[in-house]
């Protein structure tokens, strides 16, 4: 099995990121999501944090774990 390159990581988070970004634009332009309210703000923040958690997990298992 060939050793994975960074292309897989970039593809996942750029192509997937575009889809995620489209979704986030719809969230910000939605007529019911009022970011002044804590209940919406918390969930939207966790959504964005979630994207970076996923990115961090995959980056960790790409750059760090195989070298341990």
């Amino acid at each position: 099995m060939p050793t994975p390159t960074i292309l897989s990581l970039l593809y996942q988070y750029i192509v997937g990121g575009i889809l995620f970004l489209i979704g986030m634009i719809l969230v910000f332009k939605s007529d019911v999501v009022d970011l002044r309210l804590r209940k919406y703000r918390t969930q939207v923040i966790w959504l964005i944090v979630g994207y970076f958690i996923y990115l961090a997990i995959h980056s960790f298992f790409f750059f760090v774990v195989p070298r341990l």
Partner: peptide
């Protein structure tokens, strides 16, 4: 085996872009 993502397009039976 310690990578969390597979190689981009090889082997045909298990590759990153197909699974994505």
């Amino acid at each position: 085996h310690k990578y969390a993502l597979a190689y981009f397009n090889k082997p045909p039976s298990f590759n990153f872009v197909g699974i994505f």
